[in-house]
Nucleic acid binder design. Structure first.
Lengths: 341, 341
DNA sequence: AGTGGTCGCTAAACTGATTTAGCAGAGCAT
DNA sequence: ATGCTCTGCTAAATCAGTTTAGCGACCACT
């Protein structure tokens, strides 16, 4: 790859100057007393030779690589990972940096390996990302340089970027209250594990808290709360069937994520009920399926792209130490209507 | 990041040997005449100092970086990208390599930038990936070193890895024939643009060809073929409604991808028809929603993870020049049944 | 005339590895 | 005693940049 590229020495020779002069000119160093003419000659030579610096050589001296490590537990399995990466990629490009991506798959050996691999390559900093918003402990090895946690927080007080799930909970509840829903709001997706163990999830607790807080302020109680062992369509389906078997039918359903809502839609369809005329549905995440459902599903979007971007900014530009909360915008779609009757 | 790491010189000093000796021992060079004792002393010293080589220095000399560039048009917008990357990541790790990921967003300027950024970093090779299987022309700049096309082919005859869409077409048609479907099979998702322009898609034509070939051999014709401007749920929905408005109802539907099938399910549900008792459905991709649908959707899986892996193997280990076809396994699920009546 | 300062530039050191060329000593044959 | 080979090891060059220290020419001032 890239044999016979012109070197700085070539440029210097062609410009009739020393390597030192060429280096200084090309790096735009202030305060050198090189003549305007020398500048021109160097630029012309570099241009003509198609000179591009060898970054390995440069970083050997400067210990900078313009490379950021993006270490995550699981890249692939969530549809969101791509957005996280894309945001980071964009922000990195704007700052002339590039991303070295590795995955630990939640395995300690792989993690060890991944960390060593990136540290050996002298990355300028590490973004340590989790695919589910949660608390985690970062390996000591990377603490030697800048680190930003993405979609995670840590007890070490490292800078971090997380979505504002609590705000999303408030948005969701507010949206229903504004439509006039009061005592017949049901919740699908309670989950003790996710709510109580921050190493599993921070989102569940925050979403629930936001919802509760808003409803409490309006002096509204939940009609029912369904527990689900996982947040998958089948669990949403089962929960919805359970709700429909009860005497009082809810006027609105809040699902803890879109996949649950997808399952709820299926149960509603089978029961011959119509969204939103019979029941409104709203949820969290803005998974692509939310827009594909009929009727389209109102939800609050996980701002993954923005989060990825923010993480890079925090890493390179520095910034706040307290967790950086990124707003989750409400997507108003057709699954919302005033309560029937 | 990684200040005060031990250098090779430190190891050599501690072992009471020269840098040369230390280097040779640590690289396991054959044919050096260094004593067993010298080997031990070097290993011990390296271990004790926690020595890790500075890869910038090494690659300055060797022009190898153990780094592969993964350049793609669009990482984020498809749920599949993650699998492609994951497969590549795994294979790279097994070979002690690491992935530098960049995205061109289909923009020529970004592409130029991305290519320069990775070449400047002296990557050992480039994987050039497309998110939709298609033909493309790779930028001349990367032709200086090893290149593998992933999910794409090029006129240059570069090594490439693509899914076996034609085989998938045959699997799909065969599955229906085996169940006894004959003259009432309809197809959703014909698309002239995708079928005729290889720079847009190679999959559409190949899938169609596989289906046709198998049906022809069984002397079965398609009951109907619906054209769709895009392969999104709404188009599948519209197509399915169209089919249902005709006098003869199909016994089975082949959708060109799972999103179309999702839309078809919605139309079937609204029409009060049951899958698979009234109509069987089968499609392509194995999008996560396929398993989530009720009933679960039979489909042929895009083997993205394997493809990513294969691309890295081809790049590092060399191999066949003709396009490497990766099989698309059939996922038999509940949406299949013999024709009614 | 001597001194000091500024200007415009360069030689050489330095980064941390790999690699080439070759040296000192031992053993052996002549 | 001399020449030869083999063993076990090392000095120094090299990769392509950045950075430090400083050199010679010219000018102004005393």
């Amino acid at each position: 790859m890239g044999r016979n590229r012109a070197t700085l020495a070539d440029v210097a020779r062609k410009a009739g100057l020393s390597k030192t002069a060429a280096s200084m000119v090309l790096n735009g160093r202030e305060g050198t007393r090189l003549s305007a003419e020398a500048h021109q000659r160097v630029f012309a030579a570099a241009e003509e030779l198609g000179y591009r610096p060898n970054l390995a050589a440069r970083s050997l001296r400067t210990r900078k690589t313009a490379t950021i490590a993006f270490v995550s537990d699981i890249v692939a399995t969530t549809r969101f990972a791509g957005d996280l990466i894309r945001g980071a990629l964009d922000a990195a490009r704007e700052r002339d940096h590039v991303l070295l991506i590795t995955e630990t798959q939640g395995d300690a050996t792989f993690e060890q390996y991944a960390i060593e691999a990136v540290l050996d390559r002298q990355v300028d900093g590490v973004i340590y990302a989790a695919m589910a918003t949660r608390r985690l402990t970062v390996p000591a090895a990377i603490l030697g340089g800048p680190v930003v946690l993405l979609n995670a927080t840590s007890p070490d007080g490292l800078p971090s970027v997380v979505p504002d799930d609590e705000g999303a909970g408030r948005s969701v509840a507010t949206a229903l209250l504004e439509l006039g829903h009061r005592d017949a709001i049901a919740l699908i997706g309670r989950n003790r594990l996710k709510e109580d163990d921050p190493e599993v999830s921070l989102a569940a607790r925050a979403r629930l808290h936001g919802i509760r807080q808003t409803l409490d302020e309006a002096e509204v109680g939940l009609l029912a709360e369904c527990f689900c062992t996982e947040w998958l369509p089948e669990h949403g389906y089962a929960a919805m069937r359970g709700l429909l078997s009860k005497p009082r039918r809810p006027s609105a359903i809040i699902c803890m994520n879109d996949r649950l809502a997808f399952g709820a839609y299926q149960a509603l369809g089978e029961a011959g009920l119509t969204v939103p005329e019979d029941i409104s549905v709203i949820s969290f995440d803005d998974d692509p399926i939310a827009a594909w459902l009929r009727p389209s599903l109102a939800t609050t979007a996980l701002p993954h792209e923005q989060m990825g971007r923010r993480a890079v900014e925090l890493l390179l530009d520095g910034g706040a130490v307290e967790p950086s909360l990124v707003a989750m915008p409400l997507r108003r779609r057709r699954s919302l209507a005033p309560p029937p009757g």
